[in-house]
């Protein structure tokens, strides 16, 4: 009974993943796409967490945790790319350089 509940819920998450996908493909601006990718990653984490309960192996929540970490790092990289057009220099250094530049 509980398994069915989780299965239906995970299908619901799948549908919302498909909706995010349509926003990602349709665009129109880059910010829509970044937000869609981030939200899609979150929904993948949600789906995996629920799927672990569907197949009754809750230890799979670890994988969902790893996905959350990867999603976070990818979003940071994308936003850094937008802001500074470079991935080479550390964020703290860039902020510092900008602050010094603004003072002058």
């Amino acid at each position: 009974m509980m398994t069915w509940f989780y299965l239906i819920a995970s299908v619901g998450v799948l549908i919302s993943m498909a909706l995010m996908l349509s926003r990602l493909i349709a665009g129109p601006t880059l910010y829509d796409r970044t937000l869609a990718v981030n939200s899609f990653g979150t929904k993948t984490v949600l789906f995996l967490t629920m799927f672990c309960f569907v197949i009754d192996r809750p230890d799979g929540v670890d994988i969902a945790l790893l996905y959350a970490l990867i999603n976070f790092i990818a979003t940071i990289a994308i936003l850094k790319f937008f802001r500074y057009r470079s991935l080479e220099i550390a964020l703290a250094q860039m902020a510092l350089r900008k602050a010094v530049g603004d003072d002058q």
Binding site: L24, A36, F40, T44, I63
Partner: peptide
């Protein structure tokens, strides 16, 4: 748009990883 393509390849990997689970 190459940026959208990069985003989509990331999503493709995420989707296939979820499917592997």
């Amino acid at each position: 748009s190459l940026f959208a393509v990069v985003m989509l390849t990331g999503v493709y990997s995420l989707l296939s990883a979820a499917w592997f689970v």
